[in-house]
Simulated scan of single mutants.
Amino acid sequence: MATANNILITSAGRRVSLVKAFQKELSILDAMGLVICCDAQPELSAACQVADKHFQVPRLDHPEYPDFLVQKCRELDIKLIIPTIDTELTLLARNRALFLANGIIPIVSSPELIKLTQDKRKTHELFNFYGISTAQEYDRGHFKYPMYLKPYDGSRSIDNYLLKSPDELRDEHLQNEKMMFLEYLDHDQHDEYTCDLYYDKHHNLKCVVPRKRIAIREGEVNKGITCRNEVAKLVQNKLSELPGAIGCLTAQFFMHKVSGKITGIEINARFGGGFPLTYLAGANYPGWLLGEYLFDKKVNDGFESWEDQLLMLRYDNEVLVHAYQRTT
């Protein structure tokens, strides 16, 4: 008797839209398949509550995390793992052989590519290697104001600073060895785009959807619009093949409003928080992933039938858990 094709979304948190997208696409391919979520606190995760099933996992730094996850995947007949946060990517990539040996496919890029994307200095080198401009990085003590400061391994805009004059520079900025001192790209002069990229299992780019970031909340797009423009053309031309890239990656760019110059900012080797806009515009990355890895379906080249100028306005919604009893 054939088993269902269950999938797991890890560190699910509040990614309700992503869970629902996978539920919809999996139901088309396998009516028996379940979308399962895990989180360190699943009882407080909205995504876990809307998933078909959920379970609790140890923290990512727990030494038994990989073995625990493999065991739960075997128990629940999970075939595919979809990570959602940066800190779990390296862990899954390094243990890829362990998961594969147990019939589980983690949708994660190679450790080498993840290392490049999680160090913004190396990301700049990657962009430059493929002929994409990046913001100038200043040597310490040779600054040009205004300038932008951010840690090379940071995320969600934590410890990011805009300094407009020398008197705003603090000792803690200079003493932070992780801090990058960068040319400031003024939002009054630039539009900011996050591109959702889909790479097949052979690391070939199949689709790119730029989303113009209109408003941001906690480092995640709150208002955005799809744009078929020169940013998409640049990515298609420069990053058509990216060694080690698998599944959905998000890449951030700035484009000058007058000159049209495009500057690469960063890459995240995972689904971004604003991906639901790309999915609702018609770029079916969840369906492609399921088809490619569970049903051996080829993803067609150059998908461009996504809706241009689709505006997304996000808002908070409620997930209610009746008769809730806290377990910890």
Rank of each mutant, 00 (worst) to 15 (best):
residue 39 D to R: 00
residue 49 Q to K: 04
residue 109 S to R: 12
residue 122 K to E: 05
residue 53 K to V: 04
residue 124 H to K: 15
residue 86 D to N: 11
residue 55 F to Q: 00
residue 95 N to M: 05
residue 95 N to A: 06
residue 140 R to T: 11
residue 143 F to S: 05
residue 97 A to V: 10
residue 77 D to Y: 02
residue 53 K to H: 08
residue 94 R to N: 13
residue 96 R to E: 02
residue 77 D to C: 02
residue 152 Y to H: 09
residue 48 C to V: 14
residue 111 P to D: 13
residue 96 R to S: 04
residue 71 Q to R: 13
residue 145 Y to V: 02
residue 143 F to H: 06
residue 154 G to T: 09
residue 54 H to R: 03
residue 43 E to C: 06
residue 132 I to T: 11
residue 48 C to P: 14
residue 129 F to T: 13
residue 150 K to M: 12
residue 70 V to R: 07
residue 43 E to T: 11
residue 54 H to S: 15
residue 61 D to Y: 04
residue 132 I to E: 11
residue 50 V to Q: 05
residue 98 L to W: 00
residue 125 E to S: 12
residue 136 Q to L: 13
residue 125 E to R: 13
residue 105 I to D: 01
residue 144 K to I: 02
residue 48 C to D: 13
residue 135 A to H: 07
residue 78 I to M: 00
residue 78 I to K: 01
residue 98 L to D: 00
residue 94 R to W: 07
residue 41 Q to C: 12
residue 50 V to W: 04
residue 127 F to G: 01
residue 125 E to L: 10
residue 57 V to W: 03
residue 140 R to V: 11
residue 140 R to G: 08
residue 100 L to R: 15
residue 74 R to C: 02
residue 94 R to H: 10
residue 94 R to C: 10
residue 137 E to H: 08
residue 102 N to G: 03
residue 145 Y to A: 09
residue 104 I to E: 02
residue 146 P to L: 12
residue 42 P to K: 01
residue 40 A to L: 04
residue 78 I to Q: 01
residue 41 Q to F: 12
residue 86 D to G: 07
residue 154 G to C: 12
residue 62 H to K: 10
residue 99 F to V: 09
residue 81 I to E: 01
residue 44 L to Q: 12
residue 62 H to E: 13
residue 68 F to M: 02
residue 73 C to P: 10
residue 71 Q to A: 11
residue 75 E to C: 07
residue 137 E to T: 04
residue 80 L to I: 08
residue 151 P to Q: 10
residue 103 G to E: 02
residue 106 P to R: 01
residue 145 Y to Q: 07
residue 60 L to A: 05
residue 112 E to N: 11
residue 148 Y to A: 01
residue 95 N to F: 04
residue 143 F to W: 08
residue 135 A to R: 11
residue 128 N to Q: 15
residue 55 F to T: 00
residue 91 L to Q: 01
residue 89 L to C: 08
residue 128 N to W: 04
residue 73 C to F: 03
residue 134 T to D: 06
residue 93 A to P: 13
residue 54 H to D: 14
residue 134 T to H: 09
residue 133 S to L: 14
residue 142 H to N: 15
residue 105 I to V: 14
residue 38 C to M: 10
residue 147 M to N: 08
residue 58 P to F: 02
residue 133 S to M: 11
residue 103 G to T: 06
residue 143 F to E: 06
residue 148 Y to P: 00
residue 107 I to R: 03
residue 143 F to Q: 07
residue 78 I to T: 00
residue 41 Q to S: 10
residue 127 F to H: 01
residue 101 A to N: 14
residue 45 S to T: 07
residue 117 T to F: 07
residue 116 L to K: 15
residue 74 R to E: 01
residue 38 C to I: 05
residue 104 I to V: 11
residue 38 C to V: 06
